[in-house]
Design a protein around this nucleic acid. Structure first.
Lengths: 204, 204
DNA sequence: TGTACATCAGTGAACGCGCGTTCACTGATGTAC
DNA sequence: TGTACATCAGTGAACGCGCGTTCACTGATGTAC
């Protein structure tokens, strides 16, 4: 909103977060600058310092909000395994891809911007919560197996996370190793099905 | 080699490539600058222009060399499926991780630096060759299954690539979603085993 | 073997640029009375 | 309801910085004769 009328913006903090997400989406995480984000929010380059400690702080807030949305979407998609765990699980995988496709700016801020979650408690908490969604889904799946054949739940969650992330990075966008964005969805679905069959959760 | 004695460097082109890889490894793909690479090669900031068109050109050469080494390592590790395809396949997975761990600068240049392979024929060729190594391995594996149960070879190669890449990004280094580097190897191995079981290549 | 000279890989100074950040400031808001 | 005033979210100019790139140049190399 570069042509606002009032001296006070009213909602600058959030406007900066959203401008940053759009900026990253358009030109990649390397192209993000505080100045450009301020420009897009219609504000002088000094204004962001009323709301953030600096460049890094803004970027981390984008990632944090991304993780919150991401975690919420995964939880809602899995819906505690209703109506059937398998259906719910595949739906969660699709939600993972949907998030990466619909919110690429946030996804890149979360995974490709080089931020470190360790030094930011709120960010770490949001990241943990998203991971918990994956772990709970893995748990629900594992419970369908006889006790002796249950794999470690965290391991399963991490396998799925890695596969999903790999598909996003290689096949969702035009990345070095990847070819086209066509097929990311099918790629994840087929991969997940084969994996779940390997766990014994899907019959021959 | 900042204190070389001769006016002519002798091997500046390659020195710049290697300096860039080290630089990226140390501070991430965002921190790479032509000037710093020149500085580390012990040369003025104008010197690289004798060997590269500019910043982007050097970065792409780093990625290209990375893909060549990467492809060679994967091929050698798979060794046409000797002594047994399954063993060879798992060995190739380990080689994937080894490359990412031993040559992080090259790996980041290849997958995280934001270069585009499309506009650079040599780079595209090197990337293709690496992908071919994965596809041939998948082919050898698929041939072990009865004709009616053989999955699409490219799909299998892409699943494995995505899983490997995801493991590298999330678990090999201290990345946002990831925790520690411990376990990347186990993570990929266990994931691959479950996946291969899902394909019917490993018994219960 | 010696020398003239073309070639070319480097230098170093300069450029314009946009960045992140700081600063004293000013305009708008909202609360106390 | 009106006014004084504290608060605070913005401005805009300035800073130092390092970047990528260009330029005329110079020193080293190696080849022809």
């Amino acid at each position: 909103m570069p042509d606002r009328k009032t001296y006070h913006h009213g909602n600058l903090r959030q406007a900066l977060v959203e401008a940053t997400a759009v900026l990253i989406q358009e030109t990649g995480p390397l192209a993000f600058t505080l100045s450009e984000a301020a420009r897009r929010a219609g504000v002088s380059p000094a204004a962001p310092y009323r709301h953030f400690k600096g460049r890094e702080d803004l970027l981390e807030e984008v990632a944090r909000q991304g993780f919150v949305d991401f975690g919420t979407r995964l939880e809602q998609a899995f819906d505690d395994g209703r109506p059937r765990p398998l259906t719910a699980f595949m739906r969660m995988g699709q939600a993972y891809l949907d998030f990466a496709a619909e919110q690429p700016g946030y996804y890149m801020a979360m995974f490709e911007s080089g931020i470190s979650i360790a030094g930011n408690a709120d960010l770490a908490a949001a990241s943990d919560r998203a991971q918990q969604a994956l772990i709970r889904a893995a748990e629900t799946m594992a419970e369908r197996l006889p006790p002796g054949r249950r794999p470690p739940v965290r391991m399963v969650a991490n396998h799925i996370w890695a596969l999903s992330h790999g598909v996003v990075e290689l096949f969702l966008r035009g990345k070095p190793g990847g070819r086209s964005s066509i097929g990311a969805s099918e790629m994840l679905e087929s991969g997940a099905i084969i994996y779940l069959r390997g766990l014994g959760l899907i019959g021959e």
